[in-house]
C-alpha cells in the first residue's frame, strides 16, 4: 500500500458523529480501518460487523425506520453484493449513506478488482445515487458534511467514493 497519511480517516469518523450517525456497518477493510476501530471503541454507537455488505443496506433501512442514522462502510467490490437492496433504497426512497473505498481504479494492480471497480460508478448511477468523490485528504470532511446534509436533510441516497488517489493502490 502506498501509505498516505490517514489523519483524515479519524476526521471522517468525527464528521459522521457530528451528523449523529450511530450505526456503523462494515465488512472489514483496510481503507476504513480507523473508522471501524473508532466505532468499536465508541460506547455511544452500534458497531455492526457484517457477513456481507448487503446486510448493511438493510440495516440502514431499519435504522431509519427507528429514527437512527447509519452508514455502510465498504469496498467498491462490495457494492456488487448490494444491488437488489439498493433498489429497495430507491423504491422506498430511504435516506442512505455509504462510503466506498475504491478498488479496481486508479493504479490498481490486482486484475480481479478491475471489473467491479470500473462498474461502480455506472451501477450507482443506474440506481440514482448522488456520487461524491474524494481525491485529497483535505476534501474528505467537506464531502462527508455535504453527503450527510443531502442524505438526512434532503432524503437522498449518497455514495462517497474514497478514491485510490486518496487511499493509494495496494501493491501486488
Amino acid at each position: 500500500m502506498a501509505e498516505a497519511s490517514t489523519g483524515w480517516q479519524s476526521e471522517l469518523y468525527d464528521a459522521l458523529r457530528r451528523h449523529d450517525v450511530t450505526q456503523f456497518a462494515y465488512v472489514p477493510d483496510a481503507g476504513h480501518r480507523v473508522c471501524i476501530d473508532r466505532s468499536l471503541a465508541d460506547k455511544q454507537v452500534h458497531s455492526v460487523a457484517l457477513t456481507t455488505e448487503e446486510e448493511g443496506v438493510a440495516l440502514a433501512c431499519g435504522a431509519h425506520l427507528g429514527d437512527q442514522r447509519a452508514v455502510l462502510l465498504m469496498q467498491s467490490s462490495g457494492l456488487g453484493n448490494c444491488v437488489n437492496f439498493l433498489a429497495m433504497v430507491k423504491g422506498g426512497r430511504f435516506p442512505f449513506l455509504t462510503i466506498l473505498s475504491m478498488r479496481g481504479d486508479f493504479g490498481e494492480g490486482n486484475p480481479w478488482q478491475m471489473a467491479m471497480g470500473q462498474a461502480t460508478r455506472p451501477v450507482l448511477a443506474a440506481l440514482d445515487f448522488v456520487v461524491l468523490e474524494a481525491t485529497t485528504p483535505d476534501e474528505v470532511v467537506p464531502i462527508v458534511d455535504a453527503a450527510c446534509n443531502m442524505v438526512w436533510k434532503s432524503g437522498q441516497a449518497v455514495a462517497v467514493l474514497l478514491t485510490q488517489k486518496l487511499i493509494g493502490a495496494k501493491a501486488f
Partner: peptide, 22 residues
C-alpha cells in the same frame, strides 16, 4: 407494521437496524 414484497433476504437485517434504534 412494515411489510415487504421485494428485497428478498433483507427482513432480518431491517429488524436488526430497527431493534438497535428502538
Amino acid at each position: 407494521f412494515f411489510g415487504m414484497a421485494g428485497g428478498m433476504g433483507a427482513a432480518v437485517m431491517i429488524g436488526l437496524g430497527l431493534a438497535l434504534a428502538r
